[in-house]
Amino acid sequence: MTSKLMKILVYLSAAFTFGMLGYLVIYILINGVRFLTPSLFAWNYSTSNVSMMPALMTTLMVVAGTLLIATPIGVFTGFYLVDYANRKNPIVKAIGMATDTLAGIPSIIYGLFGMLFFVIFLDFQFSLLAGILTVTIMSLPVIIRSTEEALIATGMPIRQASYALGAGKLRTLFKVVLPVAMPGILSGVILATGRIIGETAALMFTLGTATNLPGSLFASGRTLSLHMYILSQEGRHVNEAYATAVVLLVFVLVMNALSTLVSKRLAKGGK
């Protein structure tokens, strides 16, 4: 009797979760797809044609720039914490705590910090650079944590095997541990990418909201989600905001599919 009740409860919960996602996606698609006109992908934004192309390109730039800085720092920090640092050292504990705290801070606070430090103090103005640096700080904890977990999961035995063959630390880490940990590290990077794509609060006052493609690192721009936020906030282009949402959704789906594919490849290949 109770097991039957449990079963119903479990199915209901699953249906609810799936239903919410389904409803969301369908709602966005119904309201967005019909406004998805070719003109929305024009290279230039104007008040009469609120093209999302510059925003799409800016999003790619922000993602690429951020990953370029955050991935090496994050991955190396993870390596340091797992394979070099002494776990009981107070400084190492402090780094761990800092990482966890950074991960839990609301993004608007990153935005405020980025504005005060990068935009005003370092005088970067609203710029691609200020935006990238701000979201870099934001995505670091995600990359560090997932690198750490992936490295710990590889375990001691394969390290021992490598050392016992006379391989040094660097060779062990790069040739033995890294390939095994790669899917985990990659999934962290992709999680971070997802956060960057969806970010608005941290970017609004650092990257700014300029409508056209930033011509340099010191020019302002807007990412897709920021573009969507502003369109719907202004209230004059709500339909185009829905169309943007469709593109954003597709973007995220493609990212997800890509990450599954890549990590499967890596897990299988493992040479």
Binding site: P157, Q160, A161, A167, V176, K271
Partner: peptide, 25 residues
């Protein structure tokens, strides 16, 4: 460690091909 090799309690091959396992050393 090249002169004194070691085999462990749990088999611990690398998650690589058999060839690459042997060729690693």
């Amino acid at each position: 460690r090249k002169r004194v090799g070691m085999v462990f309690q749990q088999p611990n091959p690398f998650p690589k091909s058999i060839y690459d396992n042997i060729a690693f050393g």
